[in-house]
């Protein structure tokens, strides 16, 4: 069994081929957050009545996964990210246990001899202690489900999923909730990759700060209501091409700031020796994926930034993936299938 799981800071997605229906893909998608409730009989009774799965912690009840949104109305406290700041929390033991529960529930039962699970690790992968801890923890919980873990870069996975027509050669940019990952690959082999610690959550948080979109709990504590910003972006159909209103203009400005940083990074990567050696002056396709890249006009703003950074001549096209949200997990599954075939070929040889 080959499966893939994408540990995103907004959602965790898993994908695999069902052995009964190999011509279809099965996907699980759960919010990587939990809702905190008071540990009272009333709350427990309400959750029981709603048949919402919950966990009992020290002095609190927590509802995690997609049910967190269902139980949101009971709490008034904003939901808590399981992978806050793109890292496995060290000061939140229940969150780590919830990650394990979600992983166990989302991965299929292992079958056969070759059980391979390709996973993406959120946050920076710079070899720091934090990065190593993240990777080790997530690999361990995958192993606990009976799979051999295999870590893949999110942008590399997205490239496999979206750049087949470009022979898997080009620039892949995945803008997630907490980070933006950039990968330049040649024939599917990554040449250079970088991660910027800015993602969609930063834009939403800045918007919430600028416009004072907050929520308060019973004790009067204030929280940024990022969920409201997300809902506004979806419901109003924000367009970066023709920003109308102050909030949209602010959104465009924030996106421009982020994409300016992305374009600068791409420019630096293209000028690096490794990329020059491998790709020379070849024009590359830029493929965009990730939840934050779904906003209308994202590709146009990035194109403007690429022009400003004088690397437009190196770019063939700037395209958004047809499935920006699921491209990473699908690419991870492709990576797993390719790796499995390679392993089988090596074994046969």
């Amino acid at each position: 069994m080959i499966c893939a799981i994408d540990f995103g800071c907004c959602r965790i997605r898993s994908m695999f081929r069902n052995p009964q229906t190999p011509e279809r893909l099965t996907m699980h998608s759960e919010r990587s957050e939990y809702t905190l409730l008071g540990n009272t009989d009333q709350h427990r009774a309400a959750l029981d009545n709603l048949e919402v799965p919950y966990a009992e912690c020290e002095q609190a009840l927590v509802v995690f996964g997609n049910h967190a949104a269902t139980a949101q109305w009971i709490s008034r406290v904003p939901r808590t990210a399981l992978l806050a700041d793109g890292a496995v929390p060290t000061d939140d033991p229940p969150a780590r246990q919830m990650l394990n529960l979600l992983t166990e529930s989302m991965l299929p039962a292992k079958s056969g001899a070759n059980n391979l699970c390709v996973l993406t690790v959120p946050g920076l992968r710079d070899g720091s202690d934090l990065a190593k801890r993240n990777e080790t923890f997530l690999c361990r919980i995958v192993k606990m489900s009976g799979y051999q873990p295999l870590v893949v870069n999110a942008a590399e996975a997205a490239l496999l999923a979206t750049c087949s027509d470009a022979m898997f050669t080009g620039v892949s940019i995945v803008m997630g909730a907490e980070t933006t990952t950039i990968c330049i690959a040649r024939y599917g082999v990554p040449i250079d990759s970088e991660t910027i610690t800015v993602g969609g959550n930063w834009i939403d948080a800045e918007l919430a700060k600028q416009f004072k979109i907050q929520t308060y709990d019973d004790a009067g504590n204030a929280y940024l209501d990022i969920e409201k910003i997300r809902e506004w972006k979806i419901e109003s159909g924000v367009s970066l091409k023709s920003a109308i209103g102050e909030r949209e203009r602010m959104t465009k400005r924030l996106y421009t700031d982020v994409l300016d940083k992305v374009a600068a990074t791409v420019s630096r990567m293209l000028a690096s020796t490794r990329v020059c050696n491998s790709l020379s002056r070849q024009r590359l396709s830029v493929m965009l994926a990730g939840g934050a890249a779904m906003v209308d006009g994202f590709a146009e703003v990035l194109t403007e930034q690429l022009i400003q950074h004088e690397i437009a001549d190196r770019v063939l096209t700037v395209r958004t993936a047809l499935d920006p949200e699921t491209a990473v997990v699908r690419g991870a599954l492709i990576f797993g299938e390719l790796e499995s075939r390679a392993m089988a070929a090596e074994g046969a040889a």
């Binding site: 893909l25 699980h28 998608s29 799965p53 966990a55 912690c57 609190a60 927590v62 806050a84 939140d92």
Partner: peptide, 29 residues
């Protein structure tokens, strides 16, 4: 799979209905 031609079935995840977790949750910032 490469060309995204396979239909995707989105399935509901079966989470444990009640479970005890250790530790105190940090909660939202």
């Amino acid at each position: 799979l490469l060309k995204n031609r396979l239909p995707i079935d989105l399935c509901e995840t079966q989470l444990p209905l009640r479970i005890a977790l250790f530790g105190r949750p940090a909660g939202p910032r």
